[in-house]
């Protein structure tokens, strides 16, 4: 467990970017998430950990209403982004998702060129006025995703032709290009090899300076490496939420301790 060094970086805990209160999720009859309260702070990487099926991904998908695409899902409770309830009737999930971006478990580049993949978000949201601006956004996003140097000579090559780690960074670039305020990452490294994982983790830390990042992960080491705050989910309950260092070194709940020491999971 000696790789579980706690990130001793400065934690900025000024404001809550998103607040969740009493969130319940049902999939049909199945009560998947029970009464969750979480504050996502700006400029922070928040990790959600917990065993499979504990509801951490479900909760992540509530944060940008991706659960809307699942016909049987029902979300109760209140989630606010900058003080506005995102489940308000007047809220268009499309606008919400432009502000709360998402990166998925498996790299899912569109079957288009690298350039088109990154330009997709800015195009649909009309973020740029002309081609030059778009080019700039694409370049900037690829640089932020630490992919620019590898692909700058072949922006017209299909995104699906990249290696797994490159694909995932392309997906991150794609999400970054929309300039979201919060970036949700659903186990972004689970399909990657250790080297690619290291690259993506490094990237996550870079991204923290501009976005709130929320990452769901299976790996406690990863949570410990990249996050400042950690939430532990178990059987649909939020068991414990706090500073990553505190959760890993001094968990308050016995269940958290069992999980961290490998007795449940």
């Amino acid at each position: 467990m000696n790789d579980m060094r706690i990130a001793d970086r400065k934690v900025s805990t000024e404001t809550a970017k998103m607040t969740a209160r009493g969130v319940q999720v049902y999939y049909g009859e199945n009560h998947a998430l029970k009464d969750v309260d979480v504050d996502i702070l700006s400029g922070t990487v928040t990790a959600f950990i917990g065993p499979s099926g504990c509801g951490k991904s479900t909760f992540l998908r509530c944060l940008n209403r991706m659960n809307d695409t699942v016909a049987s899902a029902r979300v109760l409770g209140e989630i606010k982004l900058d003080g506005e309830n995102i489940y308000d009737k007047r809220v268009d999930p499309v606008t919400l998702r432009a502000r709360v971006g998402m990166v998925f478990q498996k790299p899912n580049p569109f079957p288009k060129s690298i350039y088109e993949n990154v330009a997709y978000g800015p195009r649909i949201h009309g973020l740029t006025r002309n081609k030059a601006e778009l080019d700039e956004v694409v370049e900037m996003s690829l640089k932020r995703a630490a992919l620019w140097n590898e692909v700058k000579d072949r922006l017209d090559a299909p995104g699906t032709g990249l290696s797994g780690g490159q694909q995932q960074r392309l997906c991150i670039a794609r999400a970054v290009a929309t300039s979201p305020e919060v970036l949700l990452m659903d186990e972004p490294c689970s399909a990657l090899d250790p080297i690619a994982t290291a690259q993506v983790e490094e990237l996550i830390d870079e991204l923290r300076s501009q976005f709130s990042v929320v990452i769901v992960t299976h790996s406690m080491q990863q949570a410990a490496r990249v996050s400042q705050r950690t939430a532990f989910f178990h059987l649909g309950h939020l068991v414990e939420y706090g500073e990553t260092g505190q959760i890993f070194t001094n968990p308050k709940d016995p269940r958290t301790e069992s999980y961290i020491t490998g007795r449940i999971g």
Partner: peptide, 24 residues
């Protein structure tokens, strides 16, 4: 996953269909 990727970026359903699903 293709559709999720597009929804996750804030595309509407028809945009997802026209720009991602149909080309694929």
């Amino acid at each position: 996953a293709m559709r999720d990727g597009s929804f996750g970026l804030g595309a509407t359903h028809s945009e997802t269909i026209k720009r991602v699903v149909l080309p694929a």
